[in-house]
Design a protein around this nucleic acid. Structure first.
Lengths: 207, 207
DNA sequence: ACCTGAACACCGTTCAAGT
DNA sequence: ACCTGAACACCGTTCAAGT
């Protein structure tokens, strides 16, 4: 047929991302394919490749937008009040987000880049923003050195990641979804207690 | 061509599983396909379906054998000595195993069953065995109730899972592999401190 | 300039037909 | 009884050809 130009390439980009997100929300990552996206938006498969480098690039973009929304959700956590309660609030908002977007959240676990392909810079930056957010909330209860604070933030991210992965991926556990709350609470409580005990044994001023 | 019967179906089963494991060890899960396995063992693709229900069944079997080896590796952890050191030893053996089998370990993260398909019973049992092993080691440092012990074991499993996933999946972090040791140590130390502090505040006899 | 759709090189899975 | 290989319904990606 040839050109259509009904949409600008920016519009087309949005249409593609929206259709992809909808598809994942409805049917999960397994149902996503370039050809299925094309079908949904009434374009040929080739058109996707005018707008995105390839399917991985498209999917990473969807994931990037999801991370933006996670960050926005985490920003609701109050910046005042009991430090320990703030960590718990952060973890709860994190868990709530994953629960509100189960199939979309699954992308983080189910989508994998080909061996050796590093993540793009803009994507890495979004991950760093999440880690920064965790660091900020963790700062009052942890860490004498910035290295230790960095590490603690990564451990919390890993722990939350592990708990949401285990409850989401039915393959890894017979865990019910409601168990995740108790696990998150247990994890945060005990881990933070450990961090605080380290604080107390140094010269810095604790809570 | 028709029948060959060079191998019994048990032999064929082993040949298929071995070829699959080798393929994953060498090139990762992404390179695995029914057709590629068939090519490697000089059988037609159809033959795989005489021995396994489908590709997921085959892959779960490979994963099951990996879990058996993980369990064997965890059994080296001494059953005597300082309780806290035993938890750390368990975590270190776990980490070592994932590092010795990086691509194979990746199966746990990269392979997913179709939506809604539950894991087979024999597979669930192997997961339970891992959890039991963790519970056993955790028992002296944690838990007034068996429910809390169960939960603690799952949190440790989730935490280890999260840390190994984050360091394995380059997509989720710019973490170097050597960071995993420090994260595991930090996680175990602080989490166990938290657990022990709970113990102390109850009527049971602590360490 | 933009988009198509055929083409290429792959998949997982089934099953009639051969030995 | 065991195994093949063609067949079916899919993939991701490219690119000459059309408007």
């Amino acid at each position: 047929m040839g050109r259509r130009s009904i949409h600008t390439s920016e519009e087309l980009r949005e249409i593609i991302l929206e259709a992809s997100t909808d598809l994942i929300r409805e049917q999960g990552f397994g149902a996503l394919s370039a050809r299925e996206i094309a079908r949904r938006i009434n374009y040929s498969p080739g058109t996707l490749y005018n707008v995105f480098e390839n399917l991985d690039d498209l999917i990473l973009t969807v994931e990037g937008r999801m991370l933006d929304r996670l960050l926005a959700a985490l920003d609701i956590v109050p910046t005042t009040g009991n430090p320990r309660e703030r960590v718990k609030a952060l973890a709860e908002h994190y868990l709530k987000f994953t629960r509100d977007n189960p199939k979309l959240w699954g992308l983080l676990f189910e989508h994998h880049l080909p061996q050796g392909r590093p993540v793009p810079g803009w994507y890495q930056q979004k991950l760093d923003q999440v880690l920064d957010r965790i660091e900020a909330v963790l700062a009052p209860v942890a860490a004498v050195s910035s290295q230790e604070l960095r590490r603690a933030a990564r451990v919390v991210w890993a722990g939350m990641h592990g708990i949401t992965a285990l409850t989401a991926a039915t393959k890894l556990s017979g865990l019910a979804t409601e168990d995740a709350d108790l696990m998150v609470e247990d994890f945060v409580n005990n881990y933070v207690t450990g961090l605080e005990s380290m604080l107390g044994s140094s010269e810095s001023t604790a809570v």
